[in-house]
């Protein structure tokens, strides 16, 4: 079922549809870096350049799963006065222009303190399709799961190189897509990804049809090609955030160019 959305906003595509007949390119950026108006512009530009899903980071004061690049983006966004309410308003504006699936990435505390019911009601109203919460493991997902489901928001499952005997337990209940974390450590661009991703993907495939996208450390078209052979899609965060850090308000053409190249590299 599609998201019910606010008046004059566009019916959104289902997350799973982006993986049918193609490899998906998922782009991450931090909301409010350098401003919410620019975030809106960047999302639409990356959509037009071929991104299949946008992950929107709700900035948090203490993002413990992030490396220095995204951590700095969180600090810039919060210093600029970005709030959860203002992010919802920005999403509503984006939704009048595009059907691309939108997924939030944030930490448990901003959702919990906003109020779980209130948060997911606002997600549904403004056209958010999923949520990724790095500090909400399988054991604690009861904190939000039923409420998120009632509002048609997929709670995206993360699987890590250390998940081992947990992989199938996690994968079995996954909806939307599975976020396969490529490497140990925090987010950040990596020159080499050593995890045996193929083995993890095959463990996942044994129990679910839910598509698998790989993220953490992917930056170059070469990496995009290699990784996309193993999975249904790739997720790029730090490389995009780094471009925004470098080019600020003038990032739009650079992001357009980058997303085009990355999307073209998927096989």
């Amino acid at each position: 079922m599609n998201n019910r959305s606010a008046s004059n906003s566009i019916e959104t595509n289902k997350i799973s549809e982006i993986f049918s007949n193609q490899k998906a390119f998922i782009a991450f950026l931090t909301a409010g870096d350098p401003s919410l108006d620019k975030t809106e512009e960047f999302i639409l530009a990356m959509d037009a350049a071929g991104a299949d899903l946008i992950e929107i980071g709700i900035p948090f004061s203490d993002p413990i799963a992030e490396g220095p690049v995204i951590e700095a983006a969180n600090e810039r966004a919060l210093s600029a006065g970005t709030t959860t309410d203002a992010i919802f308003e920005m999403v509503a504006r984006v939704r009048t222009r595009t059907a691309i699936p939108l997924v939030f990435l944030t930490y448990m505390n901003p959702v919990f303190v906003y109020g779980v019911e209130r948060f997911f009601t606002a997600c549904q109203k403004n056209g958010i399709n999923g949520i990724i919460i790095p500090d909400l493991p399988f054991e604690e997902k009861g904190e939000i799961l039923s409420v998120a489901q009632a509002h048609d928001v997929d709670v995206i499952t993360l699987i890590a190189p250390t998940s081992q005997d947990r992989i199938q337990m996690l994968a079995r209940e996954a909806t939307g897509f599975i976020y396969l974390v490529s490497s140990l450590g925090v987010t950040g661009v990596r020159s080499e990804i050593k995890t045996d991703l193929a083995a993890i993907v095959s463990d996942i495939r044994a129990v679910t049809q839910t598509p698998v996208a790989v993220g953490f450390g992917i930056a170059t078209p070469e990496q995009a090609t290699t990784i996309s052979k193993l999975a249904d899609g790739i997720i790029v965060g730090s490389a995009i955030v780094r471009l925004i850090a470098e080019h600020g308000a003038a990032s739009t053409p650079i992001l357009t160019d980058y997303v085009r190249k990355m999307k073209a590299a998927l096989v």
Binding site: D135, P137, E139, E140, T162, D165, R166, V181, G185
Partner: peptide
């Protein structure tokens, strides 16, 4: 199932990478 609860407090809100 959530473990390590003290009334409503506690739990294991940790990234998947560290769960094992």
């Amino acid at each position: 199932m959530s473990k390590g609860k003290y009334g409503i407090h506690g739990g294991q809100y940790t990234p998947e990478t560290l769960m094992n």
